[in-house]
Amino acid sequence: MHRSSRYKDDGDAEKRLSIAKKISAGDERGLREAHDLWHSLLYNIAYRALGSKEDAEEAVQLTFFGAWRSRHTLKVTDSSLPGWLVGILKNTIADVRKLRYRSKLIFDKSIEEATQSALSETFDVALRMTLVNELSSLGQPRSAIMWLSLVEGLSSQKISERLNVPLGTVKSHIRRTIPLLRSRLADILERK
């Protein structure tokens, strides 16, 4: 039977069984092998569900972290591993969607509150307007995370707790977004 597929399919039941056994036994090599075989499949499912390369990649990464943490739940058969990974991915996608929704609600509420009160006195009007526009263009959950960090002055830990997002995810978004904002706001900052 010929399968036209964009994904790597090892076609080897013994290999799948071996990988499942390694993961179940706590052997990290099994997780690496599973990643090599099914990353593309999981990424494409996540991308179709989430519509964002960054969110899809993060969902796949969280799926493999989740797989490692819950490896004791894996039923070791030659066909269980791909379905088990897809199941974890589906739960991860649902979590990302909930996070986006919560982040949007918090962000919208924060924007509304910010329009009623002045932002920090250290920002002039042009910088405030540019910052609000730039944060709005980031997409969720990055915009909510950056708003809580830059405008409300919350620590990464507090943001993690407030949004119910892993601390590493919050720190990663902040670390990747600060240089982007810095370059976008450079003109205004240079005029000060």
Rank of each mutant, 00 (worst) to 15 (best):
L17W: 08
D27V: 11
L41P: 02
S79H: 12
D78G: 02
A25Q: 11
R97N: 06
H39Q: 14
N44C: 13
F65N: 01
G30K: 05
T77V: 06
A34K: 06
E54F: 11
A34E: 10
F65T: 00
A94G: 06
Y7G: 08
E58V: 07
G30W: 14
E28N: 12
P82F: 03
S40H: 09
G11S: 09
I19R: 13
E57K: 03
L89D: 00
V96T: 06
A67H: 01
I93T: 02
A25D: 10
A59L: 07
L89P: 02
L42P: 02
L31N: 11
Y47W: 05
R6A: 02
S18K: 15
A34S: 14
Q61E: 10
F64C: 00
R69H: 09
S70M: 10
A34L: 11
E57G: 07
H72A: 14
Y43E: 05
K22V: 05
I23F: 15
L99W: 12
G26M: 08
S80H: 14
A49G: 06
V86Q: 07
R69K: 15
R71E: 06
W38I: 02
Y47N: 09
L85Y: 04
A25R: 13
D95E: 14
R100S: 04
V76G: 10
D36N: 14
R6Y: 09
L41S: 14
K98I: 03
I19W: 12
R71P: 03
L62W: 03
W38K: 03
L41E: 12
A34V: 11
